[in-house]
């Protein structure tokens, strides 16, 4: 699968809240594999999922995701 074009802080944010991948996947309504793929930057989430993450972590999207080039 194509590597993700975005860097993200999902793993760190999840660790700060002491959530497992399984717990985060339940909160976001996606599979555990999806969380793992996003954290390991193998998959860029859709805009809709990125907004759900931003809402969950109470952060702007750009505090979670940054373009690879930056």
């Amino acid at each position: 699968m194509q590597e993700a074009l975005l860097k993200n802080r999902l793993r760190v944010l999840r660790a700060e809240r002491e959530w497992s991948q399984g717990e985060l996947s339940q909160k976001l309504g996606v599979s555990r594999q999806a969380i793992n793929a996003i954290e390991t930057e193998k998959h860029d989430p859709s805009l809709e999922l990125a907004f759900r993450m931003a809402k969950l972590f109470k952060l702007p999207i750009e505090k979670i995701f940054t373009p690879e080039t930056e």
């Binding site: 699968m1 793993r11 002491e18 959530w19 594999q33 793992n36 793929a37 193998k42 998959h43």
Partner: peptide
Amino acid sequence: RNRPGSSDCL
């Protein structure tokens, strides 16, 4: 390639 292999501290 997409197996869940990353470590999970929690």
